[in-house]
Each structure stands twice: as C-alpha cells, then as structure tokens.
Amino acid sequence: FEIPDDVPLPAGWEMAKTSSGQRYFLNHIDQTTTWQDPRKAMLSQM
C-alpha cells in the first residue's frame, strides 16, 4: 500500500527520488538506503 507523503518519516530518515522518479529512503542514523518505506513498519506496529 502507498503511504501519503504527509505522513512523517521516523527520526533520522529522508525520502529521495531517483532520476527516473522512483522513491527511496535514506537512513542517516546508520548510513543506509532502502527501497522499503520505513513508515510501513511503523504503521504496522500501531
């Protein structure tokens, strides 16, 4: 499912887009990137 862009990312995360428009996520805390939206895990725990 798609999460609306107005749902905030967890602390330390940033959303970016590739030149082709694909979204990816940067974790500044552990210096990693992922295609997986970290908000999905956050919302599934609620």
Rank of each mutant, 00 (worst) to 15 (best):
S44R: 12
F1I: 15
E2Q: 14
D30N: 15
N27C: 13
K17E: 14
T33V: 07
N27V: 00
D30M: 10
P8T: 11
S44M: 08
D5S: 13
M46W: 10
Q31Y: 09
D37G: 01
R39E: 01
L9E: 04
T32G: 04
P8F: 00
L43A: 13
F25G: 02
A16N: 09
Q31P: 00
G21T: 02
T32Q: 05
T18Q: 04
K40F: 11
F25D: 03
S20N: 14
A16S: 13
L9A: 04
P8D: 09
E14R: 03
F25R: 01
R23P: 12
P4I: 15
P4M: 14
G21R: 03
G12K: 03
Y24I: 05
A41F: 14
Q36P: 00
T34Q: 08
S20G: 12
I3P: 06
V7R: 09
S20Q: 14
D5F: 05
L26H: 02
M46Q: 15
T32L: 11
D30K: 11
P10A: 02
T18Y: 01
L9F: 12
Q45V: 08
S20I: 10
S19P: 11
L9K: 06
T32F: 15
I29L: 06
Q45L: 08
E14L: 02
G12Y: 03
N27L: 00
N27A: 00
S19D: 05
P8E: 05
Y24V: 06
R39K: 03
S20K: 15
M42Q: 08
W35V: 05
L26K: 11
H28C: 05
D6T: 15
G12A: 05
V7S: 13
W35K: 05
S19T: 11
K17V: 12
I3E: 03
Q36F: 07
E2V: 09
G21L: 02
F25N: 01
D5V: 07
D37A: 01
S44I: 03
P8N: 04
L26N: 07
I29M: 10
F1A: 13
Y24K: 02
R23Y: 01
T34P: 01
E14Y: 03
T32N: 07
D37K: 00
K40L: 11
T32Y: 15
W35C: 07
D5N: 12
E2Y: 11
M42W: 11
I29S: 11
T33Y: 02
Q45R: 10
F25M: 02
P8M: 04
Y24T: 02
K40T: 10
V7Q: 10
P4Q: 08
W35D: 06
R39N: 01
V7N: 11
K17T: 12
K17M: 09
Q31L: 07
L43V: 14
P10D: 02
S44T: 15
M42C: 13
V7L: 09
R39I: 01
T34H: 06
L9D: 02
R23Q: 14
K40G: 12
G21I: 03
E14Q: 09
L26D: 01
P38V: 00
W13F: 05
I3K: 03
R23G: 08
M15V: 13
S19K: 15
K17N: 12
R39D: 00
A11Y: 13
D37S: 02
E2P: 14
V7G: 09
P8A: 11
Q22W: 04
T32D: 06
S20F: 07
A16R: 11
D6S: 14
D30L: 15
A41C: 07
P10F: 13
Q22H: 11
Q45I: 10
M42V: 12
G12E: 05
I3A: 06
E2A: 05
D5E: 07
W35P: 08
E2S: 15
D6G: 09
G12T: 01
D6P: 02
M42R: 12
G12P: 05
D6W: 05
W13D: 08
D6Y: 09
T18V: 06
M42T: 14
F1R: 00
P10R: 02
Q31A: 09
L43H: 15
A11Q: 14
P38A: 01
L9Y: 07
I3C: 06
K40W: 07
A16L: 08
A11F: 12
V7F: 08
L43E: 14
A16E: 06
E14H: 04
I3D: 06
F25S: 01
Q45P: 07
Q31I: 00
R23S: 11
D6N: 14
M15H: 09
N27K: 01
Q31W: 04
Y24C: 05
A41V: 13
P10L: 01
Q22F: 03
Q45D: 10
M46G: 11
S44E: 14
W35Q: 04
M15N: 05
F1Q: 03
Q36M: 13
L9H: 03
D30E: 14
Q36T: 09
H28M: 12
Q22N: 09
A41Y: 10
P8Y: 02
N27Q: 02
L26W: 04
T33H: 13
H28N: 09
F1W: 00
M15Y: 03
S19Q: 07
L26P: 01
L9G: 02
D6F: 06
K40C: 07
L43R: 12
T32H: 09
T32C: 13
R23C: 12
T33Q: 03
Q22R: 07
K17G: 04
P8K: 06
L26Q: 05
T34F: 00
G21F: 01
T33A: 04
L26G: 03
Q31E: 04
E14W: 01
E14G: 11
A11D: 11
K40V: 12
Q45G: 11
T18R: 02
F1L: 08
A41I: 02
E2R: 08
H28Q: 07
P10N: 02
P10K: 04
Q36Y: 14
A11S: 12
D5L: 06
S44Q: 10
T18P: 02
Q31D: 04
D6R: 09
T33I: 03
L26F: 04
Y24E: 03
P10T: 00
L43F: 10
K17D: 13
P4L: 15
E2T: 11
K17L: 12
T33K: 06
R23A: 09
H28W: 04
R39T: 06
A41Q: 14
P4S: 15
Q22I: 08
I29W: 09
I29V: 13
S20M: 11
A41T: 14
Y24L: 03
R39Q: 02
M42K: 09
